[in-house]
């Protein structure tokens, strides 16, 4: 090892008593020793590991939920064929013939576990609510990001985010007690509680999500692009329509997908206001039962580890897969946008 005078490390004209310790140390030790010395700070080590653990635990929990859910769901197929998830041939004693029944009727002499009515229910609620939230949410996001003054935004944005904080049972109660009857009068629907009322309720929770994400993605569009557009003589509206919105289109699509995922996952509002009759229908004014509401409604009285119990887990797994896929889609689309804008 070289032992050499490394006094040159000390800056000139500095009083040695006030110089930083590294200079004093190097005067005594030697440079190669100093440079290879590992610094160990216990506090830093602990914090680092704790943060890593926090991150890992959340992944672990998701993985465990995933495993548990699928383990239970797959038990269902021990006793029931996958075909039953679509429908079941049942002998109708009254008509004296075999009929193909696409019904969810778990408590019955011949239990029927068709997912079709539940999927219909979920989509009849989630789809209209996403369309409504997207139309107003994109408009509102554009307003917040491009038009509103800072002051307006400071008031409006937190107010909108409050919507997301309203407990869904409160929204469900409001839709049930206040909104459902006038809506029936307006649309002259057969059922007071129907998918459309549910969709409007779910809109209240999906809308703020879409607004926030749309606004974020519009604001992520570099200012330079807007300037370029204005400098070419574009008006504000032309700039929004031809530059800002197209540049943010991936973020806007992702916002809609995530809003859709949220709408699919919503349980309480749907359970309270859609009437819960599991029908295979395409009519939004029909009463429906969603995947989520079905679990919530039946989990309370299901017999532990029965066929019915596993069927509910299967419904949960289906829901999980759908939202999981939607989220991955949204993530891919957002990544594409970040690449496109070079952020």
């Amino acid at each position: 090892m070289m032992a050499q005078d490394i006094g040159w490390l000390k800056p000139p004209l500095v009083d040695s008593s006030s110089t930083p310790s590294i200079y004093r140390m190097t005067r005594r030790g030697n440079l190669s020793q100093l440079l290879t010395l590992k610094t160990f700070r216990a506090g830093e080590w602990i914090v680092e590991k704790l943060l890593a653990a926090a991150g890992m635990i959340s992944i672990l929990f998701i993985a465990l939920i995933f495993v548990f859910l699928f383990k239970e769901a797959l038990q269902f197929f021990k006793t029931v064929s996958p075909m039953d998830l679509i429908g079941k041939w049942v002998y109708d004693e009254y008509d004296e013939k075999w009929v193909f029944k696409t019904m969810w009727q778990a408590i019955s002499s011949v239990p029927k576990y068709s997912l079709l009515p539940l999927l219909c229910g979920s989509f009849l609620v989630a789809f209209p609510s996403t369309v409504i939230s997207a139309v107003f949410g994109i408009g509102c996001g554009i307003y917040l990001s491009e038009v509103a003054s800072d002051k307006t935004r400071e008031v409006l944005k937190p107010t909108l985010e409050l919507f997301a904080g309203i407990p869904s049972v409160v929204i469900g109660f409001f839709m049930l007690m206040v909104a459902a009857t006038p809506l029936q009068d307006i649309f002259h629907t057969k059922f007071r509680m129907n998918a459309f009322v549910g969709a409007l309720g779910v809109t209240i929770v999906a809308f703020p999500i879409i607004v926030t994400l749309v606004e974020d993605s519009l604001r992520a569009v570099p200012k330079a692009l807007r300037e370029a557009s204005y400098a070419l003589g574009a008006t504000r509206w032309q700039t929004i329509w031809r530059t800002t919105l197209p540049a943010a289109i991936s973020g806007v699509s992702a916002a809609c997908i995530l809003g859709f995922g949220r709408a699919l996952g919503e349980t309480m509002i749907v359970l309270m206001v859609t009437g819960n009759a599991a029908l295979v229908t395409g009519n939004v004014f029909s009463t429906v039962r969603s995947l989520t509401a079905n679990i919530a409604a039946e989990m309370g009285y299901v017999e532990h580890q029965s066929e019915h119990y596993y069927a509910l887990f299967l419904v949960g797994a289906v829901l999980f897969v759908i939202t999981f896929v939607l989220n991955i889609f949204a993530e891919i689309i957002l990544n594409r946008m970040r690449r496109k804008l070079r952020m």
Partner: peptide
């Protein structure tokens, strides 16, 4: 009055 900016800012088109 056209303008060219310091940092090239083509639209993502």
């Amino acid at each position: 009055v056209g303008m060219v900016f310091q940092k090239s800012n083509p639209f993502p088109k």
